[in-house]
């Protein structure tokens, strides 16, 4: 399913259709994430990917406007480059532990401590929240700062030449 939507995005020339397909893609991705037990992430992906980013893309599309031109160059070179890279990476995956391998390194190091001690140390049963806000508080602080900076950047880029800010209206 996701693959079909991705291919559709790649070949579709109408940008409006691309944005709507992108929204569908995000929902499918959120479903896949629920299946992978990442409920927090799925919730974020559904609201961010399918909600906000669609609105933003549509807003930007309204400002940019237009159909995509047919690519003039031959698409075979980029296609070949992508396929070769995917091939190399797939070859690389054979060195990785299989799906749901409890002995994989990812499950061995800090995670048992999080799962065993998070409730005792923080009193928060949702380990994702505990790790996000407490154990990895520095990461989240930096990340909040990045979001803030991006917002400030958008303001700086789009502020000038804003006429009639009072009656600006979306359709």
């Amino acid at each position: 399913m996701m693959a079909v939507v991705t291919v559709a995005i790649a070949v579709q020339g109408n940008l409006f259709a691309v944005v709507v397909l992108g929204s569908i893609y995000s929902f499918l991705m959120a479903t896949a994430l629920v299946a992978l037990d990442a409920v927090d992430v799925a919730m974020t992906e559904a609201s961010v990917g399918a909600g906000i980013s669609t609105v933003l893309l549509l807003g930007a599309l309204h400002l940019v406007r237009g159909e995509e031109q047919k690519p003039r160059g031959r698409p075979w070179l980029p296609l070949a480059a992508s396929v070769v890279m995917a091939g190399v990476l797939v070859y690389g995956t054979f060195g990785l532990p299989g799906f749901s391998d409890a002995g994989a390194p990812i499950h061995q190091h800090v995670v048992p401590r999080y799962l065993n001690d998070a409730v005792r140390e923080t009193g928060v049963p949702n380990v994702v929240t505990a790790v996000l806000a407490s154990y990895r508080g520095y990461d989240t602080l930096g990340e909040t700062t990045v979001v803030f900076t991006a917002g400030a950047g958008v303001i700086a880029l789009l502020r000038r030449r804003r006429r009639d800010r009072r009656d600006g209206d979306v359709r």
Binding site: L63, V154, L158
Partner: peptide
């Protein structure tokens, strides 16, 4: 804010 910026721009 990002939404306001995009939507408010003509």
């Amino acid at each position: 804010k990002i939404f306001y910026m995009f939507a408010g721009r003509r």
